[in-house]
C-alpha cells in the first residue's frame, strides 16, 4: 500500500520542532553570544570578536577550572571503571544473594543528586561526620574532607565514584554474560591460568563495554554541577570550581553572558571531540570476534 508522502514528516514534526527550538538553535545562539559582550539587561549586544575567548584563556581562574574539570573527570572515570571491573567479576553469579547485592550497589544511581550531595556532606562533616568516626576507629586524625582545598576535589570524586559504581558494574556484568562460554571451555582444556584467562579472554572481550563506559563516564563527569552547587559552590579557593559551574556563575551571578557563552563553546568543543571519537570507534567496533 502506498502511503501519503507527507505522512512520515507529519509524524516526526513535533519531535523535530522541540529539538530545533530547545537543542539546536541554542547551540548556535550560544556560539553567536560568545562573540559578543552582553550583560543581559542592556538592550544591545556588542560584537567583540574573539575577545571573550582571549579573556578566558588568559584568566588563571578559568585555567584552574579546566584543570579541576579534567582531574575530576579523569579520576572519577578511572576509579569507577577499575572498581566496577573487580566488582563485576566478583558479583557476576546467580542467586538471590548476588542479585540483592547488585541491587544495593545500583541504588545510588536512581537517587536524586540533591540527596546524594547532602547525605555525603553530612557523612563527610569534619566534626560529627560518620567518615571521620570510621577513621578514628583505626586511629586516624579527622580529615576536613570538603572544607580543605587539598581534599575537596578528591572528596567529590569519592562521592561520584560511589554513585557510579553500581551502574558501571551492571554494564560490565552484562558484558561478561555476553562472552561466549566456549572460549572459556577452550581455555580450560589448555589449562590456562585464571590470570591469563582474564588478560587473554575476559578483558579483550569486555573492551566494548569498557570503551562505552569510558565515553559515558567522560561525558557525564565533565558536566558535573549538582554536587558542586550544593556542597562546595566551587570552593574552597576555587579548588572544586568546574566548567559547568563556572558557566553558571558567570552567566547567572555575574551576568557576563558573552564570557559564559565562550566557556560554553569550549565545553561544546570538548564534548564534540569525545562524541566524535565514540562514533568513529563504534564504526570500527572494538571487539575481537
Amino acid at each position: 500500500m502506498k502511503v501519503a508522502k507527507w505522512r512520515p514528516y507529519l509524524l516526526i514534526t513535533p519531535a523535530i520542532i522541540v529539538f530545533l527550538v530547545f537543542f539546536i538553535q541554542p547551540i548556535f545562539y550560544m556560539i553567536y553570544l560568545s562573540f559578543h559582550d552582553w550583560n543581559f539587561i542592556s538592550p544591545d549586544k556588542t560584537f567583540v570578536g574573539l575577545e571573550n575567548f582571549k579573556a578566558l584563556l588568559s584568566d588563571p581562574m578559568f585555567l584552574q577550572v579546566i584543570r579541576n574539570t579534567l582531574m575530576y573527570t579523569f579520576f572519577t572515570v578511572l576509579f569507577s571503571i577499575s572498581i566496577a571491573l573487580l566488582m563485576s567479576i566478583w558479583l557476576n553469579r546467580r542467586g538471590w544473594m548476588y542479585s540483592f547485592v547488585q541491587g544495593a550497589v545500583f541504588s545510588p544511581h536512581i537517587i536524586s543528586l540533591v540527596s546524594i550531595a547532602m547525605l555525603w556532606m553530612w557523612i563527610m562533616d569534619a566534626d560529627y561526620g560518620l567518615l571521620n568516626w570510621i577513621l578514628s576507629l583505626v586511629g586516624m586524625d579527622k580529615v576536613p574532607w570538603l572544607t580543605d582545598p587539598n581534599t575537596a576535589l578528591a572528596s567529590l570524586i569519592i562521592i561520584a565514584v560511589w554513585k557510579n559504581i553500581g551502574y558501571y558494574t551492571l554494564i560490565i556484568i552484562a558484558g561478561l554474560q555476553s562472552i561466549p562460554k566456549h572460549l572459556y571451555e577452550a581455555a580450560a582444556l589448555d589449562q590456562t591460568s585464571s590470570f591469563r584467562r582474564f588478560t587473554k579472554i575476559t578483558f579483550p572481550m569486555l573492551s566494548p563495554s569498557i570503551f562505552f563506559l569510558t565515553i559515558i563516564g567522560i561525558l557525564d563527569s565533565i558536566k558535573v554541577f549538582e554536587t558542586i552547587s550544593i556542597i562546595t559552590k566551587g570552593g574552597p579557593l576555587n579548588s572544586t570550581n568546574t566548567l559547568v559551574y563556572y558557566i553558571y556563575e558567570n552567566g547567572f551571578i555575574f551576568f557576563k553572558i558573552g564570557y559564559a557563552s565562550a566557556a560554553g563553546v569550549i565545553l561544546l568543543v570538548i564534548l564534540s571531540i569525545v562524541t566524535l571519537i565514540y562514533f568513529k570507534v563504534l564504526g570500527k567496533r572494538v571487539h575481537y570476534q
Binding site: 516526526i12 519531535a15 547551540i27 550560544m30 552567566g251
Partner: peptide
C-alpha cells in the same frame, strides 16, 4: 522518506547534547 538519514542524524546529535551545555541560551530564550 527523503532526508530520513539527515533527520535521524539530528536525533542522534540531540541525544549527545546535555542540558548543562545549552542552559544559558535556553534560559535567555
Amino acid at each position: 522518506f527523503r532526508c530520513k538519514n539527515i533527520l535521524f542524524g539530528l536525533v542522534m546529535v540531540t541525544m549527545m547534547i546535555p542540558a548543562q551545555l545549552i542552559f544559558l541560551p535556553v534560559f535567555l530564550n
